[in-house]
């Protein structure tokens, strides 16, 4: 009914975190010139992956909800929000399905972090072996 709202909210929170992390990383690079030599991908870039997944998914899911007539261009914008019974059902679905979506996307991102960490570690080991 409105499960994409949960992921869209997570996307907004992740965007704020990403901006803060990027700002800190830029300051750190200016202070410590050695950081520029590191071949590790910055954390801000990795947080961007999660933001992109959440934003992309939420956008296309929002389109699906418009397609099914669950999102309308007039107040209250969600057809399920018009009466109390549907509102309760909508909130339940947002918590269950939306929560599940948030968990799965975040878990997939976690897996991506793990794989990228392993690749970076292997790359560093190869570099030190060459030296």
């Amino acid at each position: 009914m409105a499960c994409f709202i949960a992921t869209a909210v997570e996307a907004a929170v992740v965007t704020v975190i990403e901006k803060r992390v990027e700002k800190k990383e830029i300051e750190k690079v200016h202070l410590d010139a050695e950081n520029t030599k590191s071949n590790k991908l910055p954390l801000g870039q990795k947080i961007k992956w999660l933001r992109n997944l959440l934003l992309g998914g939420s956008f296309l899911l929002a389109f699906e909800h418009i397609w099914h007539g669950e999102v309308v261009p007039y107040f209250p914008f969600l057809t399920a929000a018009a009466n109390a019974e549907d509102r309760l059902q909508m909130l339940k679905e947002m918590a269950l399905v939306g929560g599940g979506m948030m968990l799965l996307v975040t878990a997939v991102w976690g897996l991506m972090l793990l794989v990228s960490h392993m690749i970076e570690k292997r790359g560093q080991e190869e570099n030190t072996a060459e030296e």
Partner: peptide, 19 residues
């Protein structure tokens, strides 16, 4: 851009399909 859009929505629709 296409990868993020389609992977994000595929993951979300997968959860929808499970429910």
């Amino acid at each position: 851009v296409l990868c993020w859009l389609f992977w994000g929505s595929s993951l979300m629709w997968f959860v929808d399909a499970v429910f």
